[in-house]
Design a protein around this nucleic acid. Structure first.
Lengths: 217, 217
DNA sequence: ATCCGGCTTGGGAAATTTGCCCGAGCTGCA
DNA sequence: TGCAGCTCGGGCAAATTTCCCAAGCCGGAT
């Protein structure tokens, strides 16, 4: 195994914007101990690049077209449980953070973070530690992170079905009719799902459902 | 007037993500003829920085918190009609592009563009030419041919901005705070957007925004 | 110059939904 | 047997949505 700790930390950059990758690359390389050994611009290529270069840390933006970034995390972790993945995105929704950690991410920093915070997060993740930026810690703190895995694992069958129909665009009445439930019960499930997943908005719920593959858009 | 053509092109960078600015700065500086003379992380500061440094080109991301990026473009152009503004964002929706040029932008390139395309666009804009990346030209071309305009064409600028933030997961209060509007007004827009687009559900609204490229999931 | 229409901004009030409490029946499991 | 969790719904105050309206502004048409 090539443990490159002595020579620095090798990084695989995954982001769909070329110039953004280019910028990150320069910022990271200027640190001295960080070396970008490969890049990928989509989730599908990410695992191939990971296999080919065995980087110490994968830095990836989960908001990419095509397959979900969460999928990429699961993909890499499933076959290489040692992989250290740092999610680096502009989103700071608790549901996404939990989903990312649930999928196997080692860290989560937002693009609002100072560059120094980002590079420190990379170093932390490379050492095997968990890392997150201050704003993420805040949203998670208010949310009381549950130690269970994927967000959907917290949901029962009924809850998932209602979430699917809701994210698909169905109204509360339609869902109630489809499932032969009272409107009140559907409303309660709606609320329950929100509190379980930490979504504070219907829109966040739809995004969650989409990132979990519950609905396609 | 300090025409700095002989010594290169001075650039003001406006983007709300520190590390992204840092990255752009390094990419641009490495070109030799491009010099980042100032940065701003929000629309409000952008004009101040513009006045203070009189850059040849303003490179700005229109998807920022606070006042809309379009607002910033109008702001700068209103007081300095000579200003050259290059919009640089991940969004590629035709309505946004048209709105940006309408507000006075000189160019529009997406973050999907190759770095070389971006720096060439900056040079073109500095020479007073109009510039846009290939993908933008493509969406504009298709848009002009399409008999059935996008659903988003029915929406005004404010409505689009609010839809984007809503679909991104922001609450009504957050949107109101971002745009300096009353909660009531945001609620009214929310309703207005629904009736205009025919969406009967928040979830449908999010899906609509996603299929129009207003938000990424 | 004037009017018309659309955008933007908000008020008001009724209708609906949310947020969060509760209990009850069911199942599986220890 | 008992506990835990899912499913289902009642209740009720608080918040939001829904829909109507008005006023200012601006651009285009007359």
């Amino acid at each position: 195994m090539n443990e490159v700790a002595a020579t620095g930390i090798s990084v695989l950059l995954v982001d769909d914007h070329p110039i953004v990758r280019q910028g990150y690359r320069r910022v990271l390389e200027s640190q001295g101990d960080l070396h970008v050994v490969a890049e990928a611009d989509n989730a599908a290529d990410a695992y191939g690049a990971f296999k080919a270069h065995d980087p110490d840390v994968v830095v990836l933006d989960i908001s990419m077209p095509g397959a979900s970034g969460l999928e990429a995390i699961r993909n890499i972790r499933a076959r290489s449980p040692r992989a250290r993945i740092l999610v680096f995105t502009m989103h700071n929704e608790a549901v996404l953070v939990k989903a990312a950690f649930g999928a196997g991410a080692s860290g989560f920093v937002t693009k609002s973070s100072e560059p120094s915070a980002v590079v420190n997060a990379i170093r932390s993740v490379a050492r095997g530690e968990r890392a997150m930026s201050d704003d993420i810690a805040h949203v998670l703190a208010e949310d009381s992170l549950s130690p269970t895995g994927s967000v959907l694992d917290q949901l029962g069958e009924r809850e998932i079905e209602i979430l699917r129909q809701f994210a698909g665009g169905a109204t509360t009445e339609e869902i109630a009719a489809h499932l032969n439930l009272s409107v009140k019960t559907v409303q309660n499930y709606h609320y329950l799902i929100k509190s379980k997943t930490g979504a504070r908005t219907d829109a966040q719920l739809v995004r969650l459902a989409a990132t979990c593959g519950l609905t396609r858009i």
